[in-house]
Every structure is written in C-alpha cells, then in structure tokens.
Amino acid sequence: MPKQIITCTINGQSQRLDAHPMSRLLDVLREHGLTGTKEGCGEGECGACSIFFNGRVVNSCLVPALQAEGATMTTIEGIANGEQLHAVQEAFLKYGGAQCGICTPGMIMAAVALLKEKPNPTEADIREGLAGNLCRCTGYMKIFESVMRVFKGKGTDLEETCPHK
C-alpha cells in the first residue's frame, strides 16, 4: 500500500499525516506522537482508543486513515487547556477515576462526550454513556463518581474547554 498525505485538524492544529489509506487512525495518531490514545483490543470493544472525530466520540482503531481527510479531531492531548486540566480530568484525578491509567484517556473522552450531550446525567446515563469503555481496575464506581462530581460541581467550565460544543 503506498502512503498518501492526509490533511486534517488535530487538537486545533492543521496537520498533514503521511499514512497508508487503510492504516488504522489509531496507529497514525500514535506514530504522529499522540501516544495518549491507547490500544486495548483493536476491535472496537474496549474504547481505550476513543477520540473525538468531527465532534463525535469514535474508536480510532476502526477508522481507516483515509477517512480522516478533512476531519477535525481531538485526542486526550487536546482536552486540557494548557496546564489547566479539564473539569473531567480534574474529577478523575481527585475522585479515583484513574487507577492503572490505560483506559483513562479513552474513558475521559467518553465522559466529556457524555457531558456534552447530557450536562445533567443520571446514573443510568453515565453507565450507558461509558459502556463502550472497559475498565478492569476500578469496577467503574469511582469513574461514575468522578463524572457525577463534574456535573454537580463545576460542570459549566466544560463548555469553555471542550473543543467541540
């Protein structure tokens, strides 16, 4: 497969990626230095590779690179505002939402997507919104708590820092 140039926007910067058209977007991002997006399964099951793709959360392991042409993407590296953590990151840190940390970037992407969609989620909303992100460490309890705390606490600054409203 010959490579080709794919032009897209990642974390607010326009980028030219040199990739095989059928490469997984996950690999292309990681080879581009964005290693915060993780691979857990390679079959869209675990959610560790979740990113925002044209404003929606997707599994980057299932996106052929060519489809990123012209796309706008946000990865975990683009969630914080410089040194200022996103409210969801802050909550995961404070309330024990991250343990081993490998599912955390994807989980945070899913949580940000959920809160964007449902700023006042019920527990059922949280459970459903995160069902595509497997965590083996926490039993999910502290993840639910982290997400709950974001909306109960300072949920509003989500809008300021979230790149896709």
Binding site: T75, I76, E77, Q89, Q99, G101
Partner: peptide, 21 residues
C-alpha cells in the same frame, strides 16, 4: 487521607508513558 494519586496527572492527560509509547 485520600491523597491524590501521585502519577494521576500524567494518566488523565495521556502523558504517562507505557511500553508501547
């Protein structure tokens, strides 16, 4: 006390380096 995880910031920002990184 529930002291915050030491390497937590690296983990929530995607900066923590795992072997494949």
């Amino acid at each position: 006390q529930s002291v915050v995880r030491r390497e937590g910031r690296e983990k929530v920002t995607g900066q923590a380096k795992y072997v494949d990184d």
